[in-house]
Simulated assay, not measured.
Amino acid sequence: MSALLEVSGVSKSFDGFKAIDNLSFSVAEPELRAIIGPNGAGKTTFMDLVTGKTRPDTGSIRYGELSRDLTKLSEAQIARAGIGRKFQKPTVFEDQTVFENLSMALASPRSPWTVLTRRPSMEVRAGEVAERVGLTAHLARRAGVLSHGQKQWLEIGMLLAQEPRLLLVDEPAAGMTSAERERTTEMLVEAAKEHAVVVIEHDMEFVRRLNCRVTVLHEGRALAEGSLDHVCADPRVIDVYLGRPETEGETADA
């Protein structure tokens, strides 16, 4: 597997606080990767840097076979290049149906001709995506009446509909039931057969079920990397992350 995303020596400070400190990180295609770490470790800033929401002070972020420098692209250009992001709180169009949400997200040329002629194909594709995220029976329902877990799945479906090469998924298991977490695990594992999928998560049991390579961030640096058992046995990880209770969620991760 070749690297799809290559982060090299990236640093980012906010008002003197170094949120990312000389971080180097790579993701292959396809691959499933989990990122864990204490609050303030830099996980959200990492996602902000990759998606162009913020710019690094130093270092490079290269993407794709042409090694495009993401630091020189806008957020819209990065999204069009095939990088999708799911935030912790679902951001779906609640007054629209599941079908309408998926249809609006579908990757398609935006010429007048394709808009006029693509509906049959659009219906088929929206149905295929709905099946992938377990929402086939809910296509006609308004997104606002879905459960929290179903809204999370819909947003994942909206990302998949855009046909990204890299998906960044922030705490997908937060607020889910046990059954929903299990279904979400299956969904992400299946997606990672075709895409690069990076999951930020606090739920260690959920990360264990993903059964993937894990990167531990601490103070903006990659502290450890490997299987979950490997990183959990690292004394440094135990000291800074596993050795003390974690709060639910992550509200102020710089």
Rank of each mutant, 00 (worst) to 15 (best):
E186D: 15
H202M: 02
G220E: 03
I238Y: 09
T185N: 14
G175E: 11
T215N: 07
Y241P: 05
N211A: 15
G249K: 11
V207H: 07
A174K: 08
M176R: 06
E194K: 11
S227C: 06
A179F: 15
T215K: 01
V199C: 05
V231P: 07
V240W: 02
F206A: 12
V207S: 05
P245H: 04
D170T: 06
S178R: 15
G220C: 10
M187P: 10
H230I: 06
N211K: 14
R183A: 15
V189M: 13
A233W: 02
E225G: 03
L228S: 03
R221T: 03
A233R: 15
L168E: 10
R165D: 15
E186W: 07
E248K: 06
E225A: 04
M187Y: 12
D239G: 00
R209S: 15
H230Q: 15
R181M: 14
V199W: 09
L210Y: 03
I238F: 05
T247C: 03
T177C: 08
R221E: 01
V214G: 03
A222I: 05
V214P: 05
G175T: 13
T247G: 14
L188E: 10
L168K: 11
I200M: 10
G220T: 03
G249M: 11
V207L: 05
V169S: 12
E201Q: 05
M187V: 12
F206V: 09
D170H: 05
G220A: 12
L217W: 00
A174E: 11
V199D: 04
E201S: 02
